[in-house]
């Protein structure tokens, strides 16, 4: 069982999250050649070890998250909001309460 420490909700079970995909992909501009889009959409490293992923807390706060996870041990090293605005809001609130 994977548990993800959501920056808004706290530690929650895997069943509340949806996997989003590889967070390390830089998508090309909309008018880029089809080959570039093919590579960005379909080609993956299939990493054994630490990987950067996106997850959505679909049954919780619905926030998109970046997660750094080990694909073998499932150990999670870091979780942070994918949207910078959300990150800013949550960071400011944490500062205020500490």
């Amino acid at each position: 069982m994977i548990r993800i420490d959501c920056p808004f909700c706290g530690l929650r079970d895997h069943s509340e999250f949806s996997y989003g995909g590889d967070a390390s992909i830089n998508y090309p501009p909309l008018d880029a050649p089809a080959e570039q889009w093919h590579d960005a959409v379909f080609l993956r490293e299939n990493i054994r070890g630490r990987q950067l992923e996106t997850w959505q807390h679909t049954s919780g706060c619905r926030m998109w998250l970046n997660v750094e996870r080990d694909t073998v041990s499932h150990e999670i090293f870091a979780v942070w909001p994918a949207h910078r605005g959300y990150g800013r809001v949550l960071h400011a609130e944490k500062e205020n309460t500490e």
């Binding site: 909700c9 929650r12 069943s15 509340e16 679909t58 049954s59 919780g60 706060c61 619905r62």
Partner: peptide
Amino acid sequence: VASSALHHVG
């Protein structure tokens, strides 16, 4: 307050 899923319902 917490949002979660109960029988797959949010």
